[in-house]
Each structure stands twice: as structure tokens, then as C-alpha cells.
């Protein structure tokens, strides 16, 4: 139990770090860190055998290595300003993140969870990850941070699904992972086109489609 608790605390810290980071490169590393921590959760919950092991390896390959590699590769090819440009400040984002964490801790104490399903702190860790991800999607200027935000939100949802994964089939879990991987890949291609066409990946420049 101690292992999973330490993992979840680390995940919460990583989630908050998403909101405070000012460099795109660091943001990419945080994605990798979150992926590796996520890969460890099935092992910590279900033990290193069968279903949990396959899932853990797949998560490590896709979320721990695949995504950060894709994002880093896109970043190095784009030659963009390495600073994360926020719509509202880092301190405000972080404050909102802490607010989200407190809210999810409160929610965890109120919700009627099925006994024995979620280890303590898993629900707040997942919820703050979703929250941080969505914040990155809406409150950052660059299209690349939107992709990272989508990843962080998806990681949070994935974390919530880990304790339930033992009930489902590995096949479906893997196809979900593959789908998200292709999604990030397609977004990466779109990013290249955006950079080429707009000479920037600032979504603030998207203003030609109006009613």
C-alpha cells in the first residue's frame, strides 16, 4: 500500500508542476515523468504479473516514452519560442490547481466509492491531472501546450481506470492507448502545418472563422 501512496503523491506534485512550468522543454519532461509514474501504478495496485504487467509495459512504452518523444521531436523541428505563453499567469494557474486539488480531496471524502476499489488519494490525483490538462488546453497560447494538456487530461482519466482495468480485457485497454497515440501523432502533423502556414503555433492567431 505504501508504494501506491508514494506514487500517487508524486503524481499530484507532477500535476501541479504542469501549471507552474515556464519552458516547453521542461513541460515535455514532465509528460515523460507522469507517463513513467502511471506505468508503475498497475504494478503497485495489481502486482507484477499477467494483466498488470502487460498494461504497465504498454503504458511505459506509449505514455512514458512514445508521447514525450513525439512532443520533443515536434518541438525541436518547429524552432519556436521555448517559453510557455499563458493567457493568465503561472501563479494564478498554480493557485487554481491547488484549489482543484482541495476540491477533489473534499469530493473524495463525500463520494460513495465502492469499498476497496480506489486506493486513497487516487481519485484526487486523477482529478487534478484532468484539471491541469484542461487548464493547459484553454489557458495557454501555444498549440503544442494544448496537445500536452490533452495528454495530461487523458493520463488522469487513465489513472482513474487503472483499478478497474483488471476487470476488462487487455486488448481494449491497448486499443484505447493506441487511439490516443494516433491522436497525438495526427495533432503533431497538424502542428507542423500550422507552423508552416501561420509561421507560429499561437492559437490566438486563429481568428478567421467567425459567424
Amino acid at each position: 500500500m505504501a508504494a501506491i501512496q508514494s506514487l500517487l503523491v508524486a503524481l499530484v506534485v507532477v500535476n501541479l508542476a504542469y501549471l507552474a512550468v515556464t519552458r516547453l522543454k521542461t513541460l515535455t519532461r514532465i509528460t515523460a515523468l507522469q507517463g513513467v509514474l502511471l506505468a508503475a501504478t498497475p504494478l503497485a495496485i495489481a502486482g507484477p504479473h499477467g494483466h498488470g504487467l502487460i498494461l504497465s509495459l504498454a503504458v511505459l512504452a506509449i505514455k512514458g516514452i512514445g508521447f514525450p518523444w513525439l512532443v520533443a521531436r515536434t518541438l525541436s523541428r518547429l524552432e519556436v519560442n521555448p517559453v510557455v505563453e499563458p493567457y493568465f499567469g503561472f501563479n494564478m494557474s498554480l493557485l487554481a490547481g491547488v484549489g482543484g486539488l482541495l476540491f477533489s480531496l473534499w469530493l473524495e471524502s463525500r463520494l460513495p466509492f465502492p469499498p476497496g476499489l480506489f486506493p486513497p488519494l487516487l481519485f484526487p490525483a486523477a482529478l487534478t491531472s484532468i484539471f491541469s490538462g484542461l487548464t493547459l488546453v484553454v489557458a495557454r497560447r501555444k498549440a503544442l501546450t494544448q496537445v500536452i494538456g490533452y495528454l495530461a487530461a487523458e493520463n488522469g482519466i487513465f489513472l482513474l481506470g487503472v483499478p478497474l482495468a483488471a476487470q476488462g480485457s487487455v486488448w481494449l485497454e491497448l486499443s484505447v492507448l493506441l487511439d490516443v497515440f494516433v491522436a497525438v501523432f495526427v495533432m503533431g502533423i497538424a502542428l507542423h502545418h500550422i507552423n508552416k502556414t501561420f509561421e507560429s503555433i499561437d492559437v490566438g492567431r486563429f481568428c478567421s472563422l467567425r459567424d
Partner: peptide, 10 residues
């Protein structure tokens, strides 16, 4: 169309 595609994707 690129703007529309990005919105659609995200």
C-alpha cells in the same frame, strides 16, 4: 481549413 481542423481535433 487548418484552423477548422485544429478546432475539430482538439
Amino acid at each position: 481549413s487548418l484552423e477548422a481542423t485544429w478546432k475539430y481535433l482538439v
